[in-house]
Amino acid sequence: MDEETQNTEGPATARVTCARCGASADGVTPPPTWLCSVEKGGRQYLCEACARTHIRAIEGRLDSDWW
């Protein structure tokens, strides 16, 4: 397989954090309303509010540094 699988298991106090605003969600799995983006080889998560604010730039595949 060419893709690496990420181990999503972690400590019980692990939290997922938004890459834009710093909002966090309990657990190692983001809520279903959050977006996942792969940039510079790493996964970044966006909360629902940030995703809604920047949806046009995200769909246009603009670099996150631009928006």
Rank of each mutant, 00 (worst) to 15 (best):
N7K: 13
N7L: 14
I55Q: 12
V28D: 03
R61I: 03
P11R: 03
A51S: 15
Y45C: 00
G60S: 15
A12T: 09
P31N: 05
S24E: 14
A12R: 06
W66L: 12
Q44S: 12
M1P: 01
R15F: 07
L35N: 08
K40P: 00
T13I: 11
P30C: 08
G10F: 10
D2M: 13
P31T: 04
E48P: 01
T33I: 09
A57I: 03
Q6A: 06
L62A: 08
R52H: 01
R43N: 11
A14R: 15
S37Y: 05
A51Y: 03
T17K: 06
T29Q: 12
E39S: 10
G22K: 03
T13E: 14
S37P: 01
G10S: 08
A23C: 02
V28W: 01
G41T: 09
C21V: 07
W34V: 05
M1Y: 00
T5F: 14
R20D: 01
T29M: 11
V38R: 14
W67K: 12
C21Y: 10
D26F: 09
D2Y: 09
Y45A: 00
A49T: 06
E9K: 15
P32E: 10
G27D: 00
E3D: 00
G27M: 03
L46V: 07
T29F: 11
P30M: 06
E3L: 05
C36N: 12
E39R: 15
W34T: 02
P31K: 11
N7E: 10
E4H: 14
R43Q: 06
A51P: 04
E9Q: 15
K40Q: 06
D26W: 09
E39H: 15
S37F: 07
N7P: 04
G10N: 08
V38S: 09
R61T: 02
I58W: 04
G27R: 10
A49N: 05
R52D: 02
P31F: 08
L35W: 02
V38C: 06
R52S: 05
R20L: 03
G10R: 09
S37T: 14
G41C: 13
D65C: 05
E4L: 15
C21K: 07
C50D: 04
E9T: 14
C18V: 08
T13N: 15
I58Y: 10
D26M: 04
L62S: 03
T33G: 04
T33Q: 08
C36P: 13
T8P: 04
W66P: 00
W66T: 09
T53A: 12
C21A: 09
E59F: 11
T33W: 06
A51M: 02
C47Q: 12
T53N: 03
W66H: 04
D63L: 13
L46H: 01
P31V: 07
G41S: 12
W34H: 06
P11C: 00
P30E: 03
E3C: 00
T17W: 00
D26H: 07
I58S: 10
L62F: 08
S37D: 15
S64K: 10
R20K: 13
R52M: 01
A49I: 02
E59A: 13
G41N: 13
W66G: 03
L46S: 00
C47N: 08
M1K: 04
S24K: 14
C50Q: 06
N7Q: 09
